[in-house]
Design a protein around this nucleic acid. Structure first.
Lengths: 230, 230
DNA sequence: CGGGAGATTGAGCATTTTCAATCGGTGTGG
DNA sequence: CCACACCGATTGAAAATGCTCAATCTCCCG
């Protein structure tokens, strides 16, 4: 595997087509390539520009002083991230795979920025709902569903056919994202596999066998209405 | 108690001073008064304007189809909320007490809107961290601390003196916010009371006896570093 | 072939939930 | 004015989901 000794300037080939946000073509800033497990910016860093993820996978993380870590969002190709979103030094960004990132400085079209902000906020709210109210199985199902959306291979199988995607997160990452432990994540993933909802032989490459059932499990299985609250 | 049969137009006295966001004085739109437990807008509603909470307390909530509810934010006087934040019908807003709300339409200064959005996002991220990684005691401590900030009485006791505030949320609301059950919330609150960190006789009126300790408990008690993760 | 990192699996445990009973304040009707 | 009903809060005991600890497995790589 490549041995790139970290934050390296690189002018790479154009990215593959991705279903990302629209951009004014004028903003094609400097690109940088980050290796897996490297920090793009720190939780306490200031004056961070706006970035666009061209290719790869980035996690926004927040750590408590005692070391507990929460992943606040997983960013796929096309999405924006950076400091404007967290003036108050709030969370850091870390590449989970080789990630090509484009710096947009601070001169981003207002509308696009707002759009990205709103997406960020919606996802944060979804995550909160997941963390506050969903069971382990539902959380893992939600995560797989979300990642399948963001990272499904544009590759073969044009439409209806067991979409495969690369799970860029380790079990530990998934745990930090979903508020679970490594072991629980592993158990749930293997449960989904036994249930023939997903499949994987290599733990990184996941195939979704039954998208509908996956989505159903993500929302709360069979709709038994829960009690409480007038 | 008043019998106001809901959403009622009202021109009320000017609100007390509050430590809110700055506003261009030109935006003084229509005001409405909402009674406790009434809906300001629904989760699936569209074309909602931007609101400013003049006085009272509002909860942003998201409900799963099966009835589970997650409170995504608790809004205190001065803060903005409304649809721009959630184009994709996402969460509803509900008054928790008598709340005076000012509609700003959609003509809000961009900078102020962004500021509100970023605050919203930061709070959503903090909530996610709380829900994903904190214990019940830490969650409840965090909530009390946050509410003390947002709702501390401007009243007497100019500074250093056991700030008292009105806990506008019921135990059920707190549970829906913190991802806990009513019973756990109650137990934690009474534990804090036994520990002389807070005090209350009426379950709605809370006095903070030891702000420092409260804040410490909110962040994770005595800083024992937890394991895992390189 | 040996070492290491991540994943899986099992068993026991703990925090939090669930279930259930009781308390306390408040509003209503007799 | 008091009895009753109701709603929210509190408290205790039992149950459960998810965690901790520990062993083993599978790759990957040198």
């Amino acid at each position: 595997m490549l041995d790139i000794s970290m934050p390296v300037e690189a002018a790479l080939a154009l990215p593959p087509n991705f279903a990302g946000l629209p951009f004014s073509p004028s903003f094609v800033g400097r690109r940088r390539l980050f290796s897996p497990r490297t920090t793009i910016y720190d939780q306490d860093e200031t004056a961070v520009p706006i970035y666009r993820l061209v290719d790869g996978c980035v996690a926004l993380t927040h750590s408590l002083r005692d070391g507990r870590r929460q992943i606040l969002d997983i960013i796929g190709p096309g999405r924006l991230f950076g400091l404007v979103f967290h003036e108050d030094n709030h969370c850091g960004a870390q590449a989970l795979t080789f990630s090509q990132v484009e710096s947009l400085g601070r001169t981003v079209d207002q509308g696009i920025l707002d759009q990205a902000l709103v997406l960020m906020l919606n996802r944060a709210h979804s995550l909160a709902t997941l963390l506050g109210r969903k069971t382990a199985m539902e959380r893992v199902s939600s995560a797989v569903f979300d990642l399948a959306q963001q990272f499904k291979r544009a590759s073969r199988n044009p439409q209806r056919g067991a979409p495969t995607f690369n799970l860029h997160l380790t079990r530990a990452d998934l745990g930090d994202w979903l508020g679970l432990t490594i072991e629980t994540v592993s158990r749930c993933l293997n449960q989904l596999k036994r249930d023939k909802v997903i499949d994987f032989s290599h733990p990184e490459i996941v195939r979704v066998l039954d998208t509908d059932r996956l989505q159903a499990m993500a929302a709360g299985g069979r709709g038994e209405v829960r009690k409480r609250r007038a």
